[in-house]
Design a protein around this nucleic acid. Structure first.
Length: 166
DNA sequence: TAGGCCATCTGGTCCT
DNA sequence: AGGACCAGATGGCCTA
């Protein structure tokens, strides 16, 4: 799987070529492949002012396409960076969860569920005012663990999560 | 092989 | 206008 550490333009290009297989992406590649230098002298040769105007309009449109594609590439890079930040945040969240071995594979969804469950557990400890036993090992936060759905979207039943979901 | 998960691309929308 | 955010689409990888 591509880890997506595309920081440089070169890397962006490489990523693009590796993954441009869908119709949409091949369309994008077509646009990317525009090369101003492909207009030969013959192309630039014209039969007067009208021809020159045509040629300028064509070049102008090509430049606009190029600019749009350049903006799109920049936006893609920003989006990749943003998603990397998000993934790192998930990783940090995972490492802050106790009773989950560091090498445990945890999907983002599982991480959220487990974090939510852990927060509920801490809140319960505060409410019960039982700080002395706060380091007791909560059975429902072991890994693989049983998670009692308390959130709005996951209330109905006890959810069994297993390592295979990652 | 189907299904889950993920990274990436893309276009739309909102915000500054 | 440009950037951030979001959701949908797509393809690759992995596992049961």
């Amino acid at each position: 799987m591509s880890t997506g550490s595309a920081a440089s333009d070169a890397e962006d290009d490489e990523t693009c070529h590796r993954r441009t297989t869908s119709p949409l992406q091949s369309t994008a590649r077509k646009i990317t492949c525009y090369n101003p230098s492909r207009y030969s002298d013959e192309d630039l040769e014209d039969d007067g002012a009208e021809g020159r105007n045509k040629q300028e309009r064509r070049l102008s449109k090509a430049h606009q396409r190029e600019a749009r594609q350049s903006q799109r590439n920049a936006a893609n890079a920003r989006e990749r960076a943003r998603m990397r930040v998000l993934s790192k945040a998930f990783s940090r969240l995972k490492t802050s969860l106790p009773w989950v071995p560091a090498d445990t594979k945890l999907s983002k969804l599982d991480t959220l569920r487990l974090a939510s469950s852990y927060i509920s557990h801490l809140r319960q400890l505060l409410q019960d005012d039982r700080f002395e036993s706060s380091f007791a090992h909560p059975v429902n936060l072991t890994w693989p663990f049983m998670m009692t759905g308390r959130s709005e979207d996951d209330i109905s039943s006890t959810v069994r999560l297993c390592g295979a979901t990652a």
